[in-house]
Amino acid sequence: MRNWFDPDEVRQVGSTPDYRFSLANERTFLAWIRTGLALIAAGLGVAQFLSPLPIPHLREILAILPIAVGAGCALRGIDHWIRCEVAMRTDRPLPPSRFPALLALVVAVSALLAVVYVIADATR
């Protein structure tokens, strides 16, 4: 975690990779940040615009879930960026990640819940 705030320490490890790989790694990090921001915005939209549901606090739970996952995306993005940068500098394989699968699962479940909500709301 210390490397998150001190990138100079990362630059002292190994040798400098081709700048194109470092820039691609940075673009991937920025994509994680954009995904996190989009999830946070979706959670705020649910909290603001979803009508009250028959189950107590369900709207709040549906709002908090994407906000929490969005925060996780931001943290995972910086951690993965640093780990990839160190791996490139030390000629090791890039670190594997299960987080994209988890994120896809959360988004798919959220979409299914949204479909159920829209259908239930339309039949009222």
Score class of each variant (00 low, 15 high):
Leu50Ala: 06
Phe29His: 05
Leu30Ile: 13
Pro17Glu: 00
Leu39Ser: 03
Gln48Pro: 04
Leu44Ile: 15
Gly36Cys: 09
Arg20Ile: 05
Thr28Pro: 01
Phe21Leu: 09
Leu37Gln: 09
Thr28Tyr: 04
Pro56Arg: 08
Ser51His: 06
Ile61Arg: 12
Pro17Ala: 10
Ser22Gln: 11
Thr35Arg: 10
Ala31Met: 12
Gly45Tyr: 02
Ala31Asn: 09
Pro52Arg: 07
Leu37Pro: 06
Leu50Lys: 06
Phe21Arg: 03
Tyr19Ala: 15
Ile61His: 03
Gln48Thr: 15
Leu23Pro: 07
Phe29Ser: 01
Arg34Ala: 15
Leu44Phe: 14
Leu23Glu: 15
Thr16Arg: 13
Pro56Lys: 08
Gly43Arg: 10
Glu26Ala: 15
Pro54Cys: 04
Val46Trp: 01
Ala47Glu: 00
Asp18Val: 03
Gly45Val: 11
Pro17Asp: 09
Gly43Ile: 07
Pro52Asp: 08
Leu58Trp: 09
Thr16Gly: 03
Ile40Pro: 11
Glu60Met: 05
Trp32Phe: 13
Leu39Ala: 00
Ala41Met: 02
Ile55Trp: 05
Gly45Asn: 00
Pro52Gly: 12
His57Phe: 14
Glu60Asp: 13
Val46Lys: 00
Glu26Cys: 06
Ser51Phe: 01
Phe49Asp: 06
Pro17Ser: 08
Thr28Asp: 05
His57Cys: 04
Thr28Ile: 05
Ile55Tyr: 05
Val46Thr: 10
Thr16Leu: 06
Ile33Leu: 15
Ala47Thr: 12
Glu26Pro: 01
Thr35Pro: 06
Arg59His: 08
Gly36Met: 00
Ile40Gln: 06
Ala42Asp: 12
Ala41Gln: 07
His57Pro: 05
Phe29Pro: 06
Gly36Gln: 01
Val46Tyr: 07
Arg27Trp: 01
Ser22Arg: 06
Ala38Ile: 12
Tyr19Arg: 15
Ser22Ala: 09
Arg59Lys: 14
Thr28Gly: 08
Leu23Phe: 14
Glu26Val: 08
Val46Met: 08
His57Val: 11
Gly36Thr: 02
Asp18Lys: 10
Arg20Gly: 04
Arg59Ala: 01
Asp18Ser: 09
Asn25His: 05
Pro54Gly: 02
Arg34Tyr: 13
Ile55Phe: 10
His57Lys: 13
Leu30Ala: 13
Leu53Met: 13
Ser51Ile: 11
Pro56Gly: 10
Leu23Asn: 10
Leu30Thr: 12
Leu53Pro: 04
Glu60Phe: 13
Asn25Gly: 07
Ala41Pro: 07
Trp32Met: 07
Thr28Glu: 02
Glu60Asn: 07
Leu37His: 09
Arg27Ile: 03
Glu26Leu: 13
Ala47Asn: 03
Arg59Trp: 01
Phe21Trp: 13
Leu39Lys: 06
Ala41Asn: 04
Gln48Cys: 14
Leu58His: 04
Gly45Ile: 10
Leu44Asp: 04
Ser22Tyr: 08
Gln48Ala: 15
Gly43Tyr: 03
Ile55Glu: 10
